[in-house]
Write a protein that binds this DNA or RNA. Structure first.
Length: 223
DNA sequence: ACCCAGGGTCATA
DNA sequence: TATGACCATGGG
């Protein structure tokens, strides 16, 4: 039967993408009105529920402060107060400030768009508060670079599918998906968004959830 | 009351 | 290289 056939990594990933698309449809990520908003959201969502990130973003919108010039003019305590609902507001205020300082020192956004992906990635990772996942969020969703974002959901779902070990290093998992998806930023955009959508709206907290889109591949027996 | 959420840094061994 | 402490809000 079909289950005895060992699919290649690329075939497995294509199956996963196709299956999730059938189940949830296209996700149209990242939900934001500008590249700058995406970059701030990438920091604000660190270990935080997205619903709380929306509240923080809305506070910035109400203050008419979703621009580089406005953010950079705020004190850290003022910025922290605005993003308070997202949690870790003191560290995130500092991290957002660090990012804005980097953007300011690097010229305008169109200048950064000219940079090679590897150069841009290295520069982002040098900003204190931007780690591997946040850098790749920014590269993929703000700069449309073919970089796959690895988060905890990716680890859980991918390892339960037998694609890689859950403890595998970040860069190994990233390379796995990038090789399988072939430098296609649109597919990387969609698959990461779908993995998040699947984890959020499906059988996340129900072991052996009967309505799980991935059936036996999705076994949330432990968190 | 407890667990977790679209992580990252820093100190320590 | 790999743990542990820390940051903090809000929903289930």
């Amino acid at each position: 039967m079909a289950s005895q056939i060992k699919l290649s990594d690329a075939q497995s990933v294509q199956w996963l993408l196709t299956r999730l698309l059938e189940c949830y449809g296209p996700q149209y990520w990242w939900p934001a009105d500008s590249a700058f908003e995406i970059m701030l959201g990438a920091i604000l969502t660190q270990n935080a529920a997205w619903i709380n990130v929306i509240k923080a973003i809305n506070q910035l919108k109400i203050a008419n402060c979703l621009t580089l010039d406005c953010i950079i003019a705020l004190s850290k305590s003022e910025l922290a107060a605005l993003i308070q609902p997202a949690g870790y507001y003191n560290v995130k205020a500092q991290r957002i400030h660090n990012l804005c300082q980097f953007l300011l020192e690097s010229g305008d956004f169109s200048t950064l768009q000219q940079w090679e992906t590897s150069k841009l990635r290295s520069a982002l990772l040098q900003v204190n508060g931007i780690g591997l996942e946040t850098a790749d969020d920014i590269l993929l969703y703000a700069f449309d670079r073919p970089v796959f974002v690895v988060d905890t959901y990716t680890r859980r779902i991918g390892s339960r599918l037998g694609l890689f070990k859950q403890q595998a290093p970040y860069e190994i998992i990233r390379a796995f998906f990038e090789a399988a998806l072939g430098e296609c930023s649109a597919n990387m955009n969609e698959l990461h968004a779908l993995l998040v959508q699947h984890a959020k709206q499906s059988c996340h907290k129900v072991p052996q959830c009967s309505k799980c889109c991935l059936k036996s591949a999705c076994i949330y027996s432990t968190i």
